[in-house]
Simulated assay, not measured.
Amino acid sequence: MADLDTFAAFAERLADAARAETLERWRSGVAVEGKAGAADFDPVTDADRGAERAMRALIEAEYPEHGISGEEYGDRPARGRWAWSLDPVDGTRSFICRLPTWTTLIALLEDGRPVLGVIDAPVLGERFVGWGERAFLNGAPVRASGCAALAEARVSTTDPYLFEDMGVWERVRAEARTTRYGHDGYGYACLAAGGLDLVIECGLKPHDYNALVPVVHGAGGWIGDWEGGQDFGAGRVIAAGSRALYDEAVRLIA
């Protein structure tokens, strides 16, 4: 745990470095490109690239033996058990639309398992950090809601049209108390702080979900795959304010 305390402080330095690259660009506006080879429009900006370069430079200077995996640049293999997962701008579509809920996602993995996560929302001035059984918002402890029933749940997904089977989302939406859309990684931060009770998404990549796992678990919530396990390889994620609510969502989806 002492190592994770030290790494958590370093992860906040990474978030500071990313903010220095992203926040002013968000305020002033940036040119947008579509990523080469993407089947649909997949935007990327200088903010994405600049923030990842800044974080990589810090890791390479202070922890040259640590691995690095980021959204915009190639992987650097670890020489040991530690590796960093970086998503410099999670919610680039929100970023280019000048919406404030995009985040920077930073995770530390131990032997491939995410053990420390940061969800940083620069425009909102909110930084969520989680590891072990702890999660914090700007240094103050946060806890998930503990909501145990879908009928009472506040539910979110970024975009229901991303579901291959819209019936999956419709079954959940029909049972939930209320639904909200469009938050990307920030939705999981809201869940950790007790504002949302359930987030369901698909099509996520490791840099999208690695940071979410320690934050949700640290806040006392539960996060897993659509089948009731912890295999996120298919990119299908359910995060919930309690294990009971997670299990109910899994049963409904199945």
Rank of each mutant, 00 (worst) to 15 (best):
A61S: 14
Y63D: 03
Y63E: 07
Y63T: 08
P64L: 07
E65M: 10
G67Q: 04
G67A: 02
I68D: 07
S69M: 14
S69W: 10
G70M: 11
E71F: 05
E72V: 07
E72I: 07
G74K: 03
G74P: 03
G74I: 08
D75K: 14
P77T: 07
P77Q: 08
G80P: 04
R81D: 12
W82N: 02
S85P: 07
S85L: 13
S85T: 14
D87M: 02
P88A: 09
P88V: 09
P88E: 06
P88M: 13
V89E: 10
D90I: 01
D90G: 04
T92N: 06
S94T: 06
F95V: 04
C97V: 00
C97E: 15
L99K: 11
P100D: 01
P100L: 06
T101H: 13
T104N: 08
T104I: 10
T104S: 11
L105K: 01
L105V: 02
I106C: 05
A107K: 12
L109Q: 07
L109G: 02
E110L: 14
D111T: 03
G112M: 04
R113C: 07
P114K: 10
V115L: 06
V118C: 05
V118G: 05
I119L: 04
A121T: 03
L124S: 05
F128K: 01
V129E: 02
V129M: 10
G130Q: 03
G130Y: 02
W131D: 00
W131H: 14
G132D: 12
G132N: 07
G132H: 10
G132M: 11
E133F: 10
A135H: 06
A135G: 04
F136H: 11
L137H: 00
G139V: 05
G139C: 02
R143Q: 14
A144P: 11
S145L: 14
S145F: 12
C147A: 12
A148T: 15
A149I: 00
L150Q: 01
E152P: 00
A153F: 10
A153Y: 12
V155D: 00
S156Y: 04
T157H: 12
T157L: 11
T158R: 00
E170V: 05
R171H: 01
V172N: 02
A174M: 11
A174Q: 13
A176Y: 03
T178P: 00
T179K: 04
R180Q: 15
R180W: 13
D184R: 14
G187M: 06
